[in-house]
Design a protein around this nucleic acid. Structure first.
Lengths: 223, 223
DNA sequence: ACCTGGCTTTTTGTATCCACTTATCCAATC
DNA sequence: GATTGGATAAGTGGATACAAAAAGCCAGGT
């Protein structure tokens, strides 16, 4: 209920919204490959509507960087180059760092314990299956950002997460388990507990920037 | 030519693009007031097209935060609360700070001199008229960000600038002249010259955060 | 055999049309 | 006299239809 992160927990009240959520979800799950063309008619048929709402959804997805829209040439899934992936992580590092810094004065013990529990669930998800871990991980970062109570900041960060999510899934499927992840996330919580805003900001920045090189291995040179 | 900042220097190849640029420009210039309704038919007639491309343009503008789109209730110009204005500036501070930090290793003397000239032109624009200063100011920040050579980062920053531009114009119209502005921008250039990435990042952050309170005075409590 | 030019097919972009939601205005009732 | 209900008007969202652009294909030429 408290999570206002854009990617989660919305249900469509209009056809365009439904199309948007449908496509976004498919993209986040990696159902389409980078460079692949999204045919409006097919997607429209899939959801049971005409091409028009789908086209409008494309506009939004394009402005969030999930697809690329070229005049008269249709809609293709946006692939990331290694440089672009690093760029996303650089932006994430400062934005989520900011979120943490702003969150510090607002944090109480109850919320920290909730994060502890979330970390446990992440760990279990990592052992049991695979792609569920990614969802938990998103939730972990999303919840911390939500503590900042900055709607626009939260929205931007969420949009960046959506772009990298498919690569997170690929990464998780190839490596057996992100061993350092648990420690790093525990360190983030510890930094939040410390109450030192600047310190926590730096810890979050380091955590995010440290993840990028691992993911970069799995970027398909599809461009 | 070098500027790839999204808000500038594009011309429409498609009707939707034309509508988008037309409306964005009008919003940046403050032609519409926050809360005002944008009637698709009127705008379509204004540019000479049907409502459809205008509607698609609305989607993009909405996802950039320039308008608000509510189901069956049309498109209204997004107004900022004081909190939201501060939030934008907080985001700008870390993003433009990042851009500066990344730009440092790439800067050569020639580009610094170009910035010096731009500062001069800003000063002249500030003396002569008014709203031209805002455009120069955007160009100043845009050019520095462009040095980072991070397309997505540049795009995000540009989008944030578009949101606050109308408030910058109001602000400039009320105060006789931003006296501290020249010194602050000169300090930013000096920090770039220093070659110290972290230092330059902090100078840019302070410059941006310092501007926010002045603008906040002129936010109409329209929500 | 390869390149080039024009034709056909496919797909995109825009306009018009219809259904449904929302807002406005007036009247009736409390 | 104020408030609530309904009827009417306006406007939005979505679908279908049409025009224009691009991609693919085949034939002819070099």
């Amino acid at each position: 209920m408290s999570s206002s992160v854009a990617s989660f927990g919305k249900h469509a009240s209009t056809a365009e919204e439904e199309a948007y959520l449908h496509i976004q979800r498919a993209l986040r799950l990696g159902r389409y490959k980078p460079g692949e063309r999204l045919i409006p008619e097919d997607i429209a048929a899939e959801i049971g509507m005409s091409r028009m709402p789908v086209r409008e959804a494309f506009r939004r997805l394009a402005s969030e960087g999930l697809v690329v829209l070229r005049p008269n040439r249709g809609c293709i899934v946006a692939g990331l180059t290694v440089d672009e992936l690093y760029e996303i992580f650089e932006m994430r590092s400062v934005l989520e760092g900011l979120a943490v810094r702003l969150a510090i004065p607002r944090i109480d013990e109850e919320e920290l314990e909730e994060l502890d529990r979330l970390l446990e669930r992440m760990e279990r998800a990592g052992n049991s299956g695979g792609s569920d871990w990614v969802a938990r991980h998103q939730e972990f970062h999303g919840r911390i950002c939500a503590l900042s109570r900055r709607p626009k900041l939260i929205h931007q960060i969420s949009a960046l997460h959506a772009v990298i999510e498919p690569y997170m899934r690929i990464w998780f499927d190839y490596v057996e388990k992100p061993v350092s992840a648990r420690e790093e996330h525990a360190a983030v919580i510890a930094a939040l507990r410390s109450g030192d805003a600047r310190h926590a900001e730096l810890v979050m920045q380091d955590h995010i920037l440290g993840t990028a090189p691992m993911l970069a291995e799995f970027v398909t040179p599809s461009r």
